[in-house]
Design a protein around this nucleic acid. Structure first.
Length: 657
RNA sequence: GCCGGCUUAGCUCAGCUGGUAGAGCAUCUGAUUUGUAAUCAGAGGGUCGGGGGUUCGAGUCCCUCAGCCGGCACCA
């Protein structure tokens, strides 16, 4: 007999060889029906797999997060089986669980089409209905390779060959005639898979994630414990789509993109640029208060400069290179570049130029830390397939700064930076910030003791700002460890925004030095840092975060004064002027339209405040305020409105607490 | 860069198996002077992404280029 302890603390006895399923059945039939798998001494296992001996057993149902993961994993398997039954020429590769679902990569000559989805989903449902028992088998590695090769599954054979250490056994899961290499665990039978799944999209994906390899066809799906959850998920996606910054940018007339005129660059319209300007002035105030000095450096620099900084060697294929020559001829100007023409490059980064500013004149240890900031416009020749709305562009402006300091000042500076970043993000309403600490890579500059200090310093800095931090081992740049601060867009895509990178190398390469207290020349350490990252990307995320309904201080138009009839026009103009004088961004709407029409239009345009004026208001010198998102009206005197609204419109850093 | 899909009026979209383009909103003009989410009427507006081909005839079929979208790779 074996002893099984259950989560409620009770202990029960079972025959040798009993499985978690037997345990579930002994508790209740309904539990046995609902159970999908079990945690045995904390390890997730198949429901039918016999227990090895005494154990703590927890049954996992669809309501358990692990249960949902099992469902998605099984959905991937059922998908693979369905595809192979329908398209025998398709080879299976891998099919993991991801956020909200799963995918499966297939190798097949002929492309799949989304029109195949219906057929595949029907087949998947048929496999669920067939209720094939899912059986775990342990195979010998060589035998497994042989078997998979024999059935034409070269990719699977390769996975086994590469991933499984020699001599080790592997597990294979069978369902009906179909079988797949898999670590498991799985549901006891295909019938346990809820039919709440849906194939979502097709995409190409490189075998093993390497662009040198062949491209496979990836099918993405979503799977849930029940139909209701699936519906809710699809609805969420629909809602998220409405918040897409590209859609809102058109609706709210913020900016436009023109892939033909300037792929990957943005045409900012007055309203969008107003948001930009507000953010820029806010950042300028915050940086100034934090001891930064703002500079402006060249857009174009000689290739010699980029050679010295190392960019020419490491980053050239992403740089826009411009020949420094004047084309000759009058008609049909000859633009063929002479061979001896000097080359210039648009800056992809600001750092080398900032070092030049540091280097000009003499620097003393008394000048450190020197914090040089720039809203630096950078150009990067990104692969066309990488461009994405305003989030990934080829021309963008960083809220960049470089802190030149002594090594013993790094920790203090990092802490100050993380605190500043946290406070800025909070002002913009972001609370969920993912922080990644990338540590030393295999190939790196500098000694281990320095890396130890640097990594520890960054970790300490993140903690001091009260942010959680995930370590990414080996992901650091060769010149130093880095922190990355990430925000998420409407549909859950993660974007890097802020960053803090320690750099011991560039000051050396470009020969930056300062005079220490003992008169010796010393090398400063350089901290590359950005809070918003790029203005473009940050604004894109803000648009999605607020669904275009910006808080008052960022809103391009803060108040629209809408007149009810032309009799109120004069007063509307006067009221708008008064509000403008109070510092607000105000428009008037004097069109010959009904007030309903105006209210609707400005509400759709997400203007925070509509001030309606008619005869009564003109007479009493008041405004009828309607705030975005509320149907109520607030009657207020024009004088009070000027004071009250101006107060409301203050940026967070200017608001008295 | 790679795989797949898409590209029709300013915007959102319709246009069946090929017979030389439609709607709503927006714009303009006129009427209406209106009290908190769309007043009515009229008008203008498109070499159907570019180029090539098949055909008596192409928005529709084929090729090609570009851009965009979704992924992958990339992302100091």
């Amino acid at each position: 007999m074996i002893k099984v302890s259950l989560p409620d603390g009770s202990v029960r006895e079972y025959e040798e060889g009993a499985s978690p399923f037997d345990v579930a059945k002994s508790i209740s039939n309904s539990l046995a029906k609902k159970a999908l798998a079990a945690r045995v001494d904390g390890e997730l296992r198949d429901l039918m797999r016999p227990l090895d001996g005494d154990a703590k057993v927890e049954l996992v149902t669809a309501n358990d997060p692990d249960g949902l993961e099992l469902i998605r994993h099984d959905a991937a398997h059922v998908l693979a089986q369905a595809v192979q039954e329908l398209y025998p020429d398709a080879q299976v590769t891998i099919g993991p669980v991801i956020d909200d679902g799963f995918y499966y990569d297939f190798a097949r000559e002929e492309p799949f089409s989304t029109e195949d989805f219906e057929k595949i989903e029907a087949k998947m449902r048929a496999i669920v209905d067939a209720d094939y028992p899912i059986i775990r088998e342990v195979w010998d590695k060589d035998q497994a390779i042989e078997t998979f090769k024999n059935v034409g599954e070269d990719y699977k054979a390769q996975i086994i060959d590469d991933i499984i250490p020699p001599g080790e056994a592997i597990t294979v899961y069978k369902q009906g005639d179909w079988f797949d290499l898999c670590r498991g665990p799985h549901l006891p039978s295909t019938g346990k898979l809820p039919k709440a799944f849906k194939l979502m999209k097709l995409a190409g994906a490189y075998w093993r994630g390497d662009s040198k390899n062949e491209m496979l066809q990836r099918m993405y799906g979503t799977a849930w414990a029940n139909e209701k959850d699936l519906k809710a998920h699809l609805l969420r996606l629909e809602e998220a789509e409405k918040r897409d910054h590209r859609k809102l940018a058109t609706q709210l007339d913020l900016f436009h993109l023109d892939g033909l005129a300037a792929a990957g660059s943005i045409f900012w319209h007055p309203k969008g640029y107003q948001i930009w300007l507000q953010i820029e002035s806010y950042m300028r105030r915050r940086l100034d208060a934090a001891g930064y000095e703002e500079i402006k450096t060249p857009q174009l620099m000689d290739s010699v400069q980029w050679e010295k900084s190392g960019h020419w060697g490491k980053y050239r294929e992403n740089m826009f290179i411009v020949p420094d020559f004047i084309p000759e001829g009058d008609e049909g100007v000859d633009i063929s570049v002479p061979e001896d023409a000097k080359l210039m490059a648009l800056k992809p980064m600001n750092c080398p130029a900032h070092v030049e500013v540091f280097k000009s004149g003499q620097k003393s240890y008394r000048d450190l830390p020197l914090r040089l900031a720039e809203f630096g416009c950078c150009h990067r020749n990104e692969p066309h397939g990488a461009l994405h709305g305003i989030m990934r562009v080829r021309q963008f402006t960083q809220d960049d700064a470089h802190i030149f300091c002594r090594e013993d000042q790094i920790v203090e500076e990092s802490i100050r930076f993380c605190r500043l970043l946290e406070s800025v993000y909070r002002d913009f309403g972001f609370e969920n910030i993912a922080v990644k600490l990338s540590t030393r890579p295999d190939v790196r500059a500098g000694d281990d003791a320095t890396w130890d200090r640097a990594e520890k310093g960054l970790e300490e800095a993140v903690k001091a700002a009260g942010l959680p931090c995930e370590i990414m081992p080996g992901e650091g740049a060769f010149y130093g460890p880095k922190l990355e601060f990430q925000l998420t867009d409407a549909i859950g895509r993660v974007w890097q925004c802020g960053t803090l990178q320690l750099d011991y190398v560039l000051p050396e390469r470009l020969g930056a030095e300062y005079t220490a207290s003992d008169g010796s020349k010393q090398r400063p350490v350089m901290l590359h840092r950005a809070i918003l990252g790029s203005m473009e990307r940050f604004i894109g995320i803000l648009i999605e975060e607020f669904s275009g309904a910006f808080p008052m201080w960022l809103s391009p138009v803060q108040v629209v004064v809408a007149a009810i009839t032309d009799a109120a026009n004069d007063y509307a103009v006067e009221a708008a002027a008064a509000l403008r004088k109070a510092g607000l961004r105000v428009e008037t709407d004097l069109r010959n339209e009904k007030i309903n029409y105006k209210v609707r239009e400005h509400s759709v345009q997400k203007v925070p405040i509509i001030a309606v004026v008619g005869g009564r208001e003109a007479e009493e010198r008041t405004l009828a305020l309607r705030r975005l998102g509320s149907n109520g009206q607030q009657m207020i005197s024009l004088d009070d409105a000027c004071i009250e609204l101006a107060q409301e419109a203050l940026a967070p850093d200017l608001k008295p607490n």
